[in-house]
């Protein structure tokens, strides 16, 4: 029974290049990851354009959906930055919507989860890190380094606290990326393994694993939305730290 199929749970995350394209040493081929990023872009921009197609003062159904997402993210930004972060709202809105779309596209049948690769999520986290650094330096100049020394610390603890604060600051982009990538990857691996139990169980015993797969797919949709929300809310928290120097 075991040699009829191979158990390869990590094969679903393999990058397959669909159109090969190299420039010198750099491999810029069009992979399935790129394909799903384009799909996410097209779906997201198409959906957002549908939302604002016929704007009215009293919103119709599509406009109400768009206003729901817009007000949700705007509320998150204003709540976490105490009202001062509204000028950075477009950046955070596009971040939230893009990560949400990429997470949800992975749950379609034969869908590839782009955000399960640490390279992609590290790119997101480093963009956030660089942008927040630029914001903090532009607003505060050299007083940015006051961030590393919290108030009310006795003087003999100051060097240790400065080093630990520096580490806390440097750890943020890495944990931001690992959290998203690991949650996506873990969910999909678990779904794959439960699905192989269905194949092994057959028709009679296979009812149990398939009900688990159904319930867990629902949980995975929730986790996809929640992880996009956690990424956004932590970005807003770090943005608050960048705007007000703690």
């Amino acid at each position: 029974m075991a040699d009829q199929f191979e158990l390869r749970p990590l094969d679903q995350f393999n990058l397959k290049s669909l159109i090969d394209f190299r420039i010198g040493e750099y491999d810029l081929s069009f992979t399935n990851s790129t394909l799903f990023m384009f799909l996410g872009l097209i779906c997201l921009s198409g959906l957002l354009m549908l939302f604002i197609k016929k704007p009215q003062l009293v919103p119709n159904r599509m406009q109400a959906m768009g206003e729901l997402i817009h007000d949700f993210v705007l509320g998150t930004v204003n709540e976490n930055t105490l009202g001062k972060g509204e000028q950075y709202f477009p950046f955070i809105f596009s971040l939230f919507c893009f990560i949400l779309t990429l997470n949800l596209l992975g749950l379609l049948p034969h869908g590839f989860t782009v955000t399960s690769h640490i390279s992609v999520t590290l790119a997101f986290a480093l963009i956030v890190f660089v942008v927040l650094n630029i914001i903090a330096f532009a607003r505060h100049g050299l007083k940015f380094f006051h961030h590393f020394l919290p108030e009310g610390i006795p003087l003999f603890l100051a060097p240790v606290m400065i080093v630990i604060e520096l580490f806390v600051y440097l750890i943020r982009p890495v944990t931001l990326s690992i959290r998203l990538a690991a949650n996506m990857m873990a969910g999909h691996i678990l779904l794959y393994i439960a699905a192989t139990f269905v194949v092994i169980g057959g028709i009679t015993i296979g009812i149990i694993p398939i009900s688990f797969v159904i319930v867990f797919t629902g949980i995975e949709i929730f986790v996809a939305v929640l992880q996009a929300y956690i990424f956004t809310i932590l970005t807003c928290t770090y943005l608050n730290d960048a705007i007000h120097l703690h």
Binding site: F167, I171, T175, N183, L226, I230, L234
Partner: peptide, 24 residues
């Protein structure tokens, strides 16, 4: 707390931090 950090996320933070610390 507004952020629901489950056990997986908390352990991932510790692991990620150890990784960065060792790298530095």
């Amino acid at each position: 707390s507004k952020v629901a950090l489950g056990s997986l996320n908390v352990s991932l933070e510790i692991i990620g931090a150890i990784f960065v610390g060792l790298l530095i």
